[in-house]
Computed example of a mutant assay.
Amino acid sequence: MKKNGFFRGFKIFGGNLIAIALLGLVIIGSLLLGIGTYFLGFAGFFYIFNVEYDSLYYLLLFLIFFFILSYFTKLIAKLSLIIFGPYLKTKKRFIGMKFILITIALWLAIFIIDEMMVEITVPIWTEILGALLLSIADTAFKGKMKKIVIIKKK
């Protein structure tokens, strides 16, 4: 019986194991590309605004702590939005309050990490601008993802 499948061409080289390993490498490569882009984006942003840091290791440590802490601060912001959401009468006020709360949450994460790490010195206006840019990107990409999901459901 002849099998017609995706992995049939890999039987010569040792079976499905090679296909799965190659697929894993592609997934790991794409994850590393995304993380590297985010890292270099932060490094470029810090370079433009003359943020002083001792080495790239401390910048990577800053980003790791930022990911962890921003998750919790954004969670608190979303919970407070759930609490105050019914009091906001229009959709514009709700979106504006969401944007403000996410910006404050991201700024708080950057501020706390900046104060904890003495190896990195970020001026206050750079912290605010970074939080503002991140919240704009967060809002823009969240809207696109919801549109994609809605289109796929139809």
Rank of each mutant, 00 (worst) to 15 (best):
L56V: 14
L56T: 09
Y57W: 15
Y57V: 14
Y57L: 13
Y58E: 11
L59T: 01
L60H: 09
L60T: 15
L61E: 09
L61A: 11
F62P: 03
F62K: 04
F62C: 03
F65S: 11
F66H: 14
F67S: 15
F67V: 14
I68Q: 12
I68T: 14
L69A: 06
L69S: 02
S70R: 05
S70T: 12
S70K: 04
S70P: 09
F72M: 15
T73D: 05
K74D: 08
K74T: 08
K74H: 13
A77M: 01
A77D: 00
K78D: 12
K78Q: 06
L79C: 10
S80Q: 06
S80I: 00
S80L: 04
L81Y: 10
I83S: 02
I83K: 13
I83V: 13
F84D: 02
G85K: 15
P86D: 06
Y87C: 03
Y87F: 14
L88D: 00
L88I: 00
K89S: 00
K89D: 01
K89F: 03
T90I: 04
T90S: 11
T90N: 07
K92V: 07
K92W: 13
K92C: 12
F94L: 07
F94H: 10
I95F: 02
M97Q: 05
K98G: 12
K98W: 10
K98C: 05
K98S: 12
K98N: 10
K98M: 08
F99P: 08
F99I: 04
I100V: 15
I100R: 05
I100E: 04
L101P: 10
L101K: 11
I102W: 13
I102D: 08
T103A: 05
T103R: 03
I104S: 05
I104K: 02
L106M: 12
L106I: 09
L106K: 09
L106T: 09
L106H: 13
W107G: 09
A109D: 04
A109Q: 01
A109L: 06
A109T: 06
A109H: 06
I110K: 14
I110Q: 13
